[in-house]
Nucleic acid binder design. Structure first.
Lengths: 247, 247
DNA sequence: TGTCAAGAAATTTTCGATATTGCGCTCGAA
DNA sequence: TTCGAGCGCAATATCGAAAATTTCTTGACA
């Protein structure tokens, strides 16, 4: 399995053996491996386009092919990996066309969900938005180690902030679809930023304006700001090479 | 496996052995079983809420548990079946709340996709819409055997018509999401109609008006008509018992 | 030198069996 | 009679290997 970094084998293995948990909270090996596999892809530990071989994965996650296969199947259904019969799985490659499509879809759908969220949000929702924004605002965007890389903590805070904004949408289906589009976009955010990014951008300012509009209940303005936010990100990413999928 | 009818064991087995097909068209057993399982659920041959036991399914589809499991996993990811760890899978039960959510989501998303489709549709698209509508218009809604049941051919024609309407949307992600919502709604259409349906409705008229608006390029009117169409269906279905999930 | 076929190696897919978990039953004690 | 522990059955989850398929390698032949 080709990893971005050399040897981050950090598998938390936080899940306790079954007998120590309540029966209802039972978690299967498949679920664990699926979560780890998904995290490894979304956090950028595996390059887009990378072939995912069973032999590698069973060793890495210490389980049988069945379990790996189930995880990959789920991810394939989500579009995070691609399945080609008799040829196995690979992390979905990046392409400019796909990014354009993705951005359009997000502007439309995430905009819609944000509007619904603002119109249905209560005080608890507002609180969580404020809290998430505060945390994001105080987190450094650049990584300590390498200034060209995004920090892990910023990524987490950023994700939490946008999730918070959408959380009050009463329609679970629409919300989940919007979130899955965010996940798909996460891949691009990870792999494109080192190549070309817009230094003139005031990302923090964009987030602040978004919060202000949301808390005022001005959904139309908030949606406008969100779309601008998303398109700016796409434009920054578009500066990279047209196709960076590796074999 | 509890089936709606007694013994429709019709497994086409249309797929030829591998050596007779080109390598690229290779189809795995998993794919076949997944397609059949999906069809069995969407076409209403399995009651919503039904437990899906591995022993039954492996016998029915003549394959091992792994293959069945993969199919069920994919369907679970789509929301057509539910997975409860250590308790197996069951066809997603129907509920009034879920139907309301689903209808709202469809009005928003399918409306959006229809608008994009109309605004991007070319002559070939128009032709397919006209053709699909003609076929639908000439297909009897009631089944020959039992007038209370919808005919299989009408269901197919109806699906093809709505797919045709959306086909010109240039954004594949949005289109696929809209189609997956249609699939989810298919379950409700199947299982609710016998219980209560609105005889005063002019479904054919609704479809005709939709086509007229679409071909005129009047996307706003078309979206309005589509939303009305969807909400009417929901209202008709809402007349049934609140929860018809079976154990 | 280039092409192609045959065989070997590598990889995916599928299977059948084993391990594990959940559930219902019996049985004994309070 | 009721409750709970223990036992056995049924169903799911996981494994490891066989089977099937693709890919790579090699060598003969033009």
């Amino acid at each position: 399995m080709a990893h971005a970094d050399g040897g981050t084998e950090q598998r938390p293995d936080a899940v306790q053996p079954a007998r120590h948990r309540s029966p209802l909270a039972a978690i299967t090996r498949s679920e664990q491996v699926y979560v780890q596999l998904r995290a490894d892809i979304l956090s950028g530990r595996v390059l887009p386009g990378t072939k995912l071989r069973f032999a590698d994965l069973t060793e890495r996650y210490d389980c049988s092919t069945s379990v790996v296969r189930e995880g990959l199947t789920r991810l394939a259904e989500q579009g995070l990996v691609q399945s080609e019969p008799q040829h196995g799985f690979r992390v979905t490659p990046l392409s400019q066309d796909d990014l354009d499509d993705l951005t359009t879809a997000r502007c439309e759908l995430e905009g819609l969900v944000l509007r619904m969220s603002i119109e249905h949000g209560d005080i608890a929702w507002e609180s969580e938005v404020v809290a998430a924004h505060h945390a994001l605002d105080r987190t450094a965007m650049e990584s300590d180690g390498d200034p060209a890389l995004m920090s892990e903590s910023w990524t987490v805070a950023h994700s939490r902030f946008h999730h918070a904004l959408l959380a009050a949408c009463p329609n679970q289906r629409l919300r989940n679809m919007a979130l899955s589009l965010r996940d798909a976009a996460e891949l691009y955010r990870h792999w494109s930023r080192p190549l070309g990014h817009d230094d003139h951008r005031d990302v923090r300012g964009e987030h602040r304006a978004l919060v202000d509009a949301a808390l005022c209940g001005d959904s139309t303005e908030a949606v406008r700001l969100l779309e601008e936010h998303l398109r700016r990100t796409t434009r920054a990413l578009g500066a990279r090479e047209p196709a960076m999928s590796t074999g």
